[in-house]
């Protein structure tokens, strides 16, 4: 009835992050920058696949957010993704969200805190990345 969706591997584009959602391993990763004007094209199919995957009640899920910049519409999509994972955590999936941020970018750290503080069931961790020189 519920089946495992195919893994998603999309390289980064000029305004879109690399998307590596390896459902088979329970490992999801967003990396790069996200500011497409139309976020539906990028995140619509990704969120649909996540819904399908979470319906299989996976034992564990880890999301790495390694975004160096995202616009306000991407923020909304990201929040939708976190809400789904948090709900799955409430149903028994062991969910861990790791928010990577440039150690010199307190703005992204603050955003991470804001996104993380609303999670009720999922584990959330902020992880500074040493700034590239």
């Amino acid at each position: 009835m519920t089946s495992m969706p195919d893994d998603i591997r999309r390289p980064a584009g000029p305004r879109t992050p690399a998307v590596d959602f390896l459902f088979s391993e329970g490992a999801l990763r967003l990396e790069g920058e996200s500011y497409p004007e139309d976020v539906t094209t990028l995140y619509g199919s990704v969120l649909a696949a996540v819904d399908d995957w979470l319906a299989t009640e996976p034992p564990k899920a880890r999301l790495d957010v390694a975004l160096s910049y995202f616009n306000s519409s991407s923020a909304k999509a990201l929040m939708m993704l976190l809400e789904r994972l948090d709900a799955a955590a409430g149903r028994g999936t062991a969910v861990e969200v790791v928010w990577f941020f440039d150690a010199e970018d307190e703005g992204m750290e603050e955003l991470g805190e804001e996104f993380g503080e609303d999670l009720e069931h999922a584990a959330f961790r902020l992880e500074p990345v040493p700034a590239a020189t």
């Binding site: 976020v39 995140y43 616009n71 306000s72 519409s73 909304k76 809400e83 609303d118």
Partner: peptide, 16 residues
């Protein structure tokens, strides 16, 4: 604004 509804296309509704 981040959490209200599932509006995506043109997403904003003022969040910008």
């Amino acid at each position: 604004r981040l959490r209200d509804g599932e509006t995506t296309a043109g997403g904003g509704a003022g969040i910008g």
